[in-house]
Design a binder for these strands. Structure first.
Lengths: 107, 107
DNA sequence: ATTATATGTTACCGTGCAGTAACATCTCTC
DNA sequence: GAGAGATGTTACTGCACGGTAACATATAAT
């Protein structure tokens, strides 16, 4: 479940697509124009992955397809996993600080 | 740069390893015992990826190797990328709500 | 010193994925 | 309805990655 979201976020092209959708929904053609180096099929495949992960919702509008960002899955993995780690940011920083001090003492 | 962090987080085994390191640093052997289904070499390869991403710092202690969590890269991608999306969570929810209403109106 | 324990290194295999091409479908415009 | 424009589908290729085995090194205990 969450795994699909992480996998979707692993690719920079897909994160770029999400950035494009952040302000406003875009048609597939818009997105292809935004990434001239990538083939249209490549963009569509990335969109499929994003839709499967729930990060993008697509809607047909005539002969166009509008792609909407859905930030909810992002929010979810941050709440359920990331915050559990970053909450202890100070603790891990302390551990690492003590580690480097021990290394100095070994000289 | 950030890409290495995202790639490292894409694999659930690696996220599990980070979970193991959340409370306390662990030796490589500890981690292997924590994941009996995975080969030791597999665990080590995952650790390599995590170290390359800066999420884990390893230190030799005698014949053991202690693996420390470093949550800083996590915090960084959240601050620099994720929060830019989740901050607009309400906006994207509104867009999606309006989308579903439009779909109902089309009936 | 020898042995057992813990970790490090190299090479290989199967799978999954990014990327592309060719072809198919659908919808607007005229 | 004919053609153009936009999207959908299938199949193929190269490469990266997860996983494993075999071998190598280092350190503690005896």
């Amino acid at each position: 479940m969450q795994d699909g979201v992480w996998k979707a976020l692993a690719d920079s092209s897909r994160r770029d697509i999400l950035d494009q959708l952040k302000a406003n929904p875009r048609t597939t053609g818009d997105l292809c124009n935004a990434f001239p180096t990538r083939d249209r099929c490549t963009v569509m495949k990335h969109l499929e992955v994003l839709v499967a992960a729930g990060l993008v919702v697509a809607e047909k509008r005539g002969r166009n397809r509008l792609n909407f960002l859905n930030a909810a899955p992002l929010h979810e993995i941050v709440e359920r996993w990331v915050s559990g780690h970053t909450a202890r940011l100070a603790q891990s920083a302390f551990q690492l600080k003590r580690l480097s001090e021990d290394q100095e003492n070994e000289l």
